[in-house]
Design a protein around this nucleic acid. Structure first.
Length: 345
DNA sequence: TGTCTAGAGGATGTCAGGAT
DNA sequence: ATCCTGACATCCTCTAGACA
């Protein structure tokens, strides 16, 4: 079951798409177009009456209403069926995090956009270019790209903790030994003095090695274009994002690859190792708008870090978008009432 | 007694953030 | 900016029981 806030924002958006004057009236009517069971109606009614998440409910309702009226979207036509994925991810390898499906065709994501777009395994990102199927190394990425520095860090941490009985090879650690070593390290990401240089070396080697692999694997223009679409969460079908960032509602239509190619040309995909306190790779997409020939840049970065504590599990890659969502190529403002459809910007 | 298989439960990988 | 966490989905391994 999703948390209450998610339930309110997703179903509040759905209710806003239906022709009721006010949220309370929609809740009282329990319109059959919104296909959820009675327990969900009870929960939602209770949440609305409680006044918790009132701001979220109002913002979600306004987003749904904008979707109903937008020329890009429903153009005032009342939906016949709104399906809710129930806070769970739909099956399949769709890139878009779809929460609602309207009349079988309109896909809507209600996520409050976060800078963080995905946490794949580093190998899936740097070797598999974010595809969902294929072959890439499954082991520990640190050992994959920076074996020497990783080994030095492990040796230093093991001896600082006095755990001489642990295996020489960090890859041979059992889950219990990993937990033991993790708990023995100083808190808040600090390392024993004799391990600090090894950690700096590891960060540098992982940043440089990951960037090199990524560049090598995204060598062809076709590969780079596919990678860009995945980083931007451009899916096989267009979808809508109805959410908010800290300042304002965000109502966007996200292009399909077909739309994207007609509106933009990818000029360059720059990948470079960053200097940071943890392994990091920066990326920047340079593109040309076909409409007026102007150029644009979208930026982001990837952090490679341990998930669930040091030595506890192989590292994950955390992908960030540093360019605001409404400035990304392929993210078109959803046309408000009176606006022209904005396919061509 | 040997082989096969369903499924239980642990391990691993991924997602979506939060805390400081 | 950096590190930490909970929740799941899926993969993997082991084992009890069915059946030949």
């Amino acid at each position: 079951m999703p948390d209450d806030r998610t339930t309110v924002t997703e179903l509040g958006t759905a209710l806003g798409m239906l022709p009721f004057e006010r949220p309370a009236a929609a809740l009282a009517a329990r319109p059959r177009q919104l296909a959820v069971d009675d327990a969900v109606w009870e929960l939602l009614t209770g949440l609305q009456r409680s006044g918790h998440f009132a701001e979220e409910f109002a913002a979600a309702w306004a987003n749904g209403r904008a979707f109903l009226e937008a020329p890009d979207a429903l153009r005032g036509r009342t939906p016949l069926l709104i399906e809710w994925t129930g806070g769970r991810r739909p099956p399949g390898d769709e890139v878009a995090p779809v929460d609602l499906r309207v009349d079988h065709v309109y896909l809507v994501s209600c996520k409050y956009l976060s800078q963080n777009i995905a946490n794949p395994s580093p190998a899936r990102l740097f070797e598999g270019l974010l595809s969902t199927t294929g072959h890439w190394p499954t082991g520990d990425w640190y050992a994959e790209v920076a074996p020497a520095a990783y080994r030095r860090l492990y040796d230093a941490c093991r001896s600082a903790a006095g755990f001489d009985e642990l295996p020489d090879d960090p890859l041979a650690l059992t889950p219990a030994q990993r937990r033991q070593l993790r708990l023995a390290l100083p808190g808040r990401g600090a390392y024993p003095a004799e391990a600090r240089q090894a950690y700096r070396d590891l960060c540098r080697d992982v940043s440089v090695g990951s960037a090199e692999r990524w560049r090598a694997n995204a060598a062809s223009p076709a590969d780079r274009e596919r990678l860009v679409w995945r980083l931007l969460r451009v899916g096989s079908a267009p979808y809508f994002v109805l959410g908010a960032d800290v300042r304002r509602p965000l109502r966007l239509r996200v292009a399909s690859p077909w739309d994207w190619r007609q509106a933009f040309q990818l000029l360059d995909f720059d990948i470079r190792a960053a200097e940071a306190g943890q392994p990091q790779v920066d990326w920047a997409i340079t593109y040309r708008r076909r409409g007026d020939g102007s150029a644009g840049v979208a930026r982001g970065h990837v952090e490679v870090r341990w998930s669930h504590g040091r030595f506890a599990q192989p590292p994950e890659a955390k992908i960030y978008l540093d360019t605001p969502a409404d400035e990304l190529p392929g993210y078109f403002p959803m046309g408000g009432a009176g606006d022209q459809p904005s396919l061509w910007e």
